[in-house]
Nucleic acid binder design. Structure first.
Lengths: 339, 339
DNA sequence: TTGTACGCGTTATCAT
DNA sequence: ATGATAACGCGTACAA
């Protein structure tokens, strides 16, 4: 009576099929090259009857691979990141892998804690999305073990990454505004210590210099990538800073906040003030006026990152995959009223 | 020279500290009730020097608990579900657990595959979100092993669930439309074989009967919970069905699609046609006109589901946690023009 | 073609 | 207060 009604093991299947556990293992895991069909059938039959499911924990312990990918994001409820998550999960699921999700809120301590948690779970790889904070020193001392790591966005770690040319993208946005007759562009730039902010800020500054736009320090303000932050920063700028005829936000949520602040102040978009965002998350085209922004596929970011983890040989020599982006013009930009 | 530069094990720590692995295990996992501080310090010191991290796989194999929660959703890139995901992950992370994510697209075969994948990973529990399909027969034969399961939304399985009163919620919506003078209400009802659709449809039908509203079969149409489906169904109804002066969509995305179709047809919301959605996802208040809808906290759904998994003793006797909802009135509903 | 036996890294049971 | 040893369930040399 070994039947303690526990979940069946390979041993149980072996007994029932009248073979050894070795044979069971071989049949189940497909290395049955030299096992006659009759034996295989008997094993599979027994396995089916017992509802046998191999214990992936034991297998992982033995083989050193867990068939799992960790996904670290600032916030899964941010549209930018759940598109990435979907891409990672689609690729993983198709490969029989599982995705472990962790949110950091862009807090360095939490980033480190999440990395360690995932590493403890012996994930085969980690997709780290969101871009680096300062120089990512808080993660520099980490022993990543055998885990493959792919970064999504700019960062300060020696791992391959998947990105777009953030600097050029923002520069294009500013050129677009210039072409519409705008000369004073308020910049809602994200947090100053985010690498994504620094890259995009480079684009803003390059374009401002190149086009001879107003270069007023008061026109560059920092804050979170949220609607609330965008609204507050814009309201404050509207009240205190010199006037401006355009807003470039480094994030669509922030731009949507700006839209609201401008409307609440009684000004019109785009007639008085043009507004552009960045990332083209799905809401960008649902708001009113629909948002002009920079579009690229976050879903493909996720897919590609996961594919590189599953097959590191596909990582390009320089360690970077750069995706194209496009300027998506909608209702929130147009020629300046009376110009 | 046992140093093969592999990741250090308890054995390595034991040798360095001059104790046995048993002692190491006790100190590391906190069962050190009877071990003198001096010994503990030596072990902890050695562990720190070697950057020792216990192998959670081995621990899980031995203890039968993985400190992980599976989360099954139709689509993580749907706002409804990523709020839930955030709730689950917040609770899990605080408890030192990890969340494994799986998308099903509401396809029965994928639901089953995801369940099995998670069960193979020996998750301690599964949060199954999205509501049942037909009677959930495709999952009925599953051996859930030791996993605790919590359903989010209506379903056909013998597990506790977290929900709102979907029937009453939709009925309230229809009453609201009635109060505004609307008498012919188009119903965009989700897929006919979803349990969430059936519950909400009950609410629509009850209200229609009670209020004596137009009870035209053509006014009830079925389709996915997407903006596209909402747009197409509404456009078709606008062209073929008798006229209507209101739309009740069982999902905000669907309602947003309706908004677009109505605008494209040259009619005005809410003057000609009032539109309501359900769920109050963040976009609902960002679109124009802002959407009247039923609000409740998906985030709390997620938190609660995770808490019930971590502490099953908190499951109520009847197995159900029902959250309150509220009618959120915005710009998409108002008294009928000329009424 | 199939089986025996060991090890993956931990924790629990019994000793001492 | 501490240690030896046997599991947990599987994969894989090595034998036969």
């Amino acid at each position: 009576m070994t039947d303690k009604s526990r979940t069946p093991t390979a041993r149980a299947v072996a007994e029932r099929a009248g073979v050894s556990v070795t044979t069971v293992s071989r049949v189940i895991s497909g290395q049955a090259s030299a096992i006659p069909q009759s034996t295989q059938d008997r094993v599979l039959q027994a396995a089916r009857e017992l509802h046998y499911r191999p214990n992936t924990l034991a297998r992982a312990l033995r083989k050193g691979t867990t068939q799992s990918i960790g996904l670290i994001v600032p916030d899964i409820s941010d549209a930018y990141f759940h598109q990435i998550a979907r891409g990672v999960e689609d690729v993983a699921q198709a490969a029989g892998c599982v995705v472990i999700l962790a949110n950091t809120d862009r807090i360095p301590e939490r980033e480190l804690a999440c990395v360690n948690l995932l590493l403890d779970k012996r994930v085969d790889g980690i997709v780290f999305a969101g871009g680096g904070i300062d120089d990512d020193a808080h993660l520099a001392g980490t022993d990543w073990g055998a885990a493959k790591v792919i970064m999504v966005g700019p960062h300060g770690l020696p791992f391959p990454s998947v990105t777009v040319d953030n600097t050029a993208a923002i520069a294009d946005l500013v050129h677009h505004l210039y072409d519409l007759g705008r000369r004073r562009v308020l910049c809602l730039a994200g947090r100053e210590n985010w690498q994504i902010t620094q890259q995009r800020l480079d684009g803003y500054r390059q374009a401002v210099a190149e086009l001879g736009l107003a270069d007023d320090p008061e026109l560059v303000v920092f804050g979170a990538f949220t609607e609330t932050a965008g609204e507050e920063l814009t309201a404050k700028a509207l009240a205190s800073a010199g006037s401006f005829d355009a807003v470039v936000a480094f994030n669509d949520y922030t731009a949507i906040g700006a839209l609201r602040a401008i409307r609440d102040a009684g000004a019109r978009v785009p007639d008085d003030i043009a507004v552009v965002g960045c990332d083209d998350i799905p809401v960008a085209r649902m708001v009113h006026p629909a948002l002009t922004t920079i579009g690229f596929s976050q879903y493909d970011f996720g897919r590609t990152a996961a594919e590189l983890i599953l097959d590191p040989s596909r990582v390009p020599a320089d360690g970077n995959v750069t995706f194209p982006y496009e300027l998506v013009v909608r209702e929130s930009t147009a020629h300046k009223a009376g110009a």
